[in-house]
Design a protein around this nucleic acid. Sequence first.
RNA 1: GGUCGGGUGGCCGAGAGGCGAGGCUCAGGACUGCAAAUCCUGCUACACGGGUUCAAAUCCCGUCCCGACCUCCA
Length: 467
Amino acid sequence: MSSLELYDTLTRTVSPFTPIKKGEVSIYLCGATVQAPPHIGHIRSGVNFDILSRWLTKSGYAVTFIRNVTDIDDKILQKSEIEKMPWWALAQKYERAFSKAYAALNVAPPTYEPRATGHITQMIELMSTLIARGAAYAPGNGDVYLEVRKLSSYLTLSRQKLDDLLSADDAEETFKKDPRDFALWKGAKPGEPSWPTPWGPGRPGWHLECSAMAHAYLGESFDIHGGGLDLIFPHHENEIAQSEGAGYSFAKRWMHNAWVTTSGEKMSKSLGNSLQVTELLKSVRGIELRWYLGSAHYRSMLEFSQAALDESATAFRRIESFLHRASETLGHLPKPTLSQEFTDAMNDDLAVPAALASISEALRLGNIALSAQDSTGIANNAGQIRGALEVLGCDPFDPAFASSESGDLTAALDGTIALALAQRAAARDRKDFAASDEIRDGLSALGITIEDTPQGPRWSISRIEER
RNA sequence: GGUCGGGUGGCCGAGAGGCGAGGCUCAGGACUGCAAAUCCUGCUACACGGGUUCAAAUCCCGUCCCGACCUCCA
């Protein structure tokens, strides 16, 4: 029996996972800055860490998962002017868009989803601590900066040297003791939202919220901190600086997911190459998009193409179709189990691609069992596949993916199609294949696929409905 | 300039010194009235040049190419 090993960005190695508290895991994931609709890169991060969370849960841990929402920052203020709505309305609008996208892809809601603006008090406390300890200073203009040269260690995560960094052309540099010091708090400018502090009214810098909220919900030390690769520097370095500067040991392990790329480049709005979740959900279902995003290893770049997505969806439908046929034959849903191969793969730093290979084998054996009407074989293989899909968040029987059509409608449709199939069966009995094919083609034109099996014909809806 | 990832078959995508990952596509076969589905068989790849080794996609040296971060970033 293998045990879980995970990669740690800090050490750049895979190592055995040992939680701080036996049987419990605490995770903080940097969530979205809600200033635009989510693209699949954002959601990949959500999917990857959802798979981590599911696997930990399946492995018997009680998982506390915190994923924040950054609802105040420079971009949100900029966008609020462009979209001509208050910043808080804009933030809420896109927070809902993210929530909707997460839900469509069955990304489980975190244990708690704190917003930056709800934790100003904790931020002020943290800044007070940092100033008292001599790690931060308020130059008097309303800003509060962290003094990076005072830190005993800095940039350990990205392994850079302070003096090698290109210094920012920062207009406010004059208030900084060192150009590399970063803002914990930004003094209010006219027309901007602000909150009162001992150093004057202002608003949070980007990094402060995560240190404050991680501390509030997970304490001085927690197991895993996650986010996208691009957060390593500066965001996560600065979180470490703020937290360690305050005397907290902070995250024990750092995990970063790679990007979704297009034409070899990172997806970004400024390049105009980002793919919005709502757009992609017009061509594939949420469960298929999730399967695609989850199928590459979380630390590998995923090169997006519509062809690859379509192919991935095809592969998934093959698995799904087997599970449906298996449960029809069994007369009940397969009971989820975990194979040793799947478990070993997942324990090896969530090696999803290897885990998928184990599903392929079970699928082949399951289909053979189905042909042979071997109910034990069907149950075993379908159970393994379903167990694996559960962990990957792609169980087609998960109510989260329940189709929008009502049960009554399905029943009515089933009855209607049964009538047509009875006609077709009669035609086939009298060898009138022209007539039987006409019925099948007619149904096919309506998006209903008919397959003849040894157990009689079965129908399925093959067309993705426009939504 | 500093730091860090990559380049694998028609395509996607793992692996990280020796036993052909896996999937998709394609071709052939089985089954079928025909389809579909399914199963079987086939398609022996690791950017380039050196080197180490009994053995290199994997390690070392060099080269080329692509990408990311360096205070907006999933």
